[in-house]
Design a protein around this nucleic acid. Sequence first.
DNA 1: CGAATGATCGGCT
DNA 2: GCCGATCATTCGA
Length: 216
Amino acid sequence: MEMEPEAVSTLGHTPLPQEFYLRADVLQVARELLGKVLITDLEGGRTAGLITEVEAYRAPDDRACHAYGNRRTRRTEVMFQAGGRAYIYLCYGIHHLFNVVTGPEGMAHAVLIRAVEPMEGLGIMLERRGMRDLSPALTTGPGALAQALGLHTSQTGYSLLGPGAQIRVEDTGRRPAGADIAAGARIGMTSAGECAAWEWRFWLRGSPYVKSGGRR
DNA sequence: CGAATGATCGGCT
DNA sequence: GCCGATCATTCGA
């Protein structure tokens, strides 16, 4: 199959400013990331997707957060940096999970991007995923989306700021209405105690690009 | 140094 | 639904 030239788009010019990420309310930042566009200019070319599902993680009180209790290790150190960087780690030895670091320096907050709706670089995403046809599975689920966008643990710490950032998030100018945002418990909270019930997972209601059907 | 753990996915039943 | 893949990170000895 021959690749069509990418449609002319407004993408690639205006990443979200650092002020967006610096806010102390990670739940608000998480909700506002819905409907934004995650763009990567990495090996293989540009890929981009509309963010449809996220989860918030917040030290020190959130047991599910890697930096629970403000625990600093080499891995979690990036979460304590000022908002606007990538935190990417390996899960189950296989999946590279992409998070956006938020909050001011010293506050270890992050938003896990769980799913996007493909916007640019469809052919590249299919190739990276080893898939032939477009389906929600291409970019639904944190491991799947990271693979489709070429994200890798080696990019942890990358700045998302400035027009030259290889990984960045941009505004579409449109914001989903509050009624279009659903909330529920985060996925995979096996031993997070009370935190497991916190409804810190947010998604665009009705989007086919949401894991677990998007209940509620 | 060894061992357990996990914010998952895809294939199989 | 269940299960196996597969490895960086962390912690305890």
